[in-house]
Design a protein around this nucleic acid. Structure first.
Length: 414
RNA sequence: GUGGACGUAGCUCAGUUGGUUAGAGCACCAGGUUGUGGCCCUGGGGGUCGGGGGUUCAAAUCCCCUCGUUCACCCCA
């Protein structure tokens, strides 16, 4: 075995996949309950889609995208996130024509060239929702509520919401200037990355965790103090609705999303016990994105959750998902010469909706029973010259039955 | 991209100061039972000791490089 799965990718094997299925099934049922409908977009898109939405100076676009030229020289990129493609599809198919709020959810894999780590792969899976067409703070609250409903439905308990507002196109530039001013006053005490970001992307400096920077940032102007009246009111309403819904949150003035398209509300759902990659879900508003792509000014809000991290968190909380084994019967042959009879019975059983397995290798009866036992079947049918013997593997009892009655007997037992 | 730890059978791991044909448990296969599983007993298969190079009479063991895993930084869901 010389070829392995590429670095940062993983095979999800039987035994583990059942947990993923549970996660996806829960998402489908729950999101439908909130009237979100599934959408599937391509795995790769025109590179410009991500450059324009995520932002040229973000780490994602600068160094983490899988970008390549196709045979006609088009620049394509494996999608690094889900929001821009949904907005693109929303515009391309003129889904706004339906009016009202359009609600979508998606489940799929995304790609970023990063150093792999617990809860961080190069191909990773996200489940997300986007609600496009309303600036109501009630919708922000709904999305946050849904993310928590989803995660707690999967058995996760130690969840915390971090909440912030980063303002809109009216107030954020003002704050950005004030922050830049502040950072420049302390520029000599900031780390190299932060010095660079002070010019290119000052908001991201707030996210720095280096001790020196953190102590300086304690006194940095807060985005919350610079919100325009409309944003302030919006944020107050979001908080009010969250309280009303019984959701506890912590204000995190330094919570800045890594994607440029976010406006107003940003939030993160953190699960304690995940190590460094502790955000299981995150999202926020993107009121300017639809317009950025050439549509009418259309407000929107959404979130995405990481499937691998949810699975890790479920493991941590001891959530068990059955491994889905369900073989009901096993056919044991008294000799190779009964293979055809076995195949016919096997077919009959399966066509009758009874899961069944059989040994094709001509192994000894003892071996066949060992296989049956390992499969955990409830019944083993021993097939020989005439008729059949039906053995109850749990009781350890068996009886002779007529060959043509085997299927109907087992149907009753099922 | 940076730093630390690790890399021996399918899995979990032993492997003394470098010293002969690299071990155990579990798993797997077969037999003990002239057709019947789980327990037990016996036997068997399976490892280029991550890969490459070097030091040495001799390397799983020491050195270098490389790949991978992992934790943290970073980034982010």
């Amino acid at each position: 075995m010389t070829i392995k799965a590429p670095r940062g990718t993983e095979d999800v094997l039987p035994g583990e996949i059942e947990k993923w299925q549970r996660i996806e099934q829960t998402a489908r049922e729950l999101f439908l309950l909130y009237n979100y409908r599934e959408i599937r977009t391509p795995l790769f898109e025109d590179t410009r889609l991500f450059e324009r939405s995520i932002g040229e100076s973000t780490d994602i676009v600068e160094k983490e995208m899988y970008t390549f030229l196709d045979k006609k020289g088009r620049s394509l990129t494996l999608r690094p996130e889900g929001t821009a493609p949904v907005v693109r599809a929303y515009l391309e198919h003129k889904l706004y024509a339906k009016g009202g709020v359009n609600k979508f959810f998606y489940i799929g894999s995304f790609f970023r060239y990063e150093r792999p780590q617990a809860g961080r792969n190069r191909q990773f899976y996200q489940i997300g929702v986007e609600a496009i067409g309303s600036d109501s703070p009630a919708l922000d609250a709904e999305v946050i509520n849904l993310s928590l409903h989803f995660l707690s439905s999967l058995g996760l308990k130690t969840l915390h919401i971090a909440l912030n507002s980063i303002g809109c196109s009216a107030c954020q530039p003002l704050y950005r200037e004030k922050l830049k001013q502040f950072l420049n006053e302390h520029i000599d005490k900031l780390c190299d990355d932060c010095r660079r970001r002070t010019e290119s992307n000052p908001l991201r400096v707030l996210d720095c965790k280096k001790e020196g920077c953190v102590s300086i940032l304690k006194n940095a102007p807060s985005t919350l103090d610079f919100l325009c009246p409309a944003c302030k009111e919006h944020f107050e309403s979001v908080k009010h609705y969250l309280k009303m819904l019984g959701l506890n949150y912590q204000i995190a003035p330094n919570l800045v999303r890594g994607l440029d398209y976010y406006t107003r509300t940003t939030f993160e759902v953190v699960h304690s016990g995940l190590g460094a990659q502790n955000a299981v879900a995150a999202g926020g508003r993107f009121d300017g994105l639809v317009e950025e792509f050439g549509g009418e000014s259309t407000p929107a809000v959404g979130f995405a959750a990481g499937v691998e991290r949810i699975a890790l968190a479920m493991d941590g909380e001891g959530v068990k998902v059955s491994d889905g084994k369900q073989t009901f019967t096993f056919i044991a042959l008294l000799g190779k010469e009964y293979l055809e009879g076995g195949l016919l019975l096997l077919n009959e059983l399966r066509r009758s909706g009874i899961s069944a397995e059989m040994d094709y290798e001509g192994r000894s009866l003892k071996s066949q029973f060992r296989v049956a036992d390992k499969l955990g079947v409830k019944f083993t049918i021993i097939l020989g010259q005439e008729g059949a013997t039906l053995r109850d593997m749990v009781k350890g009892e068996q009886e002779e039955v007529k060959r043509e009655e085997v299927v109907s007997i087992l149907k009753r037992e099922k």
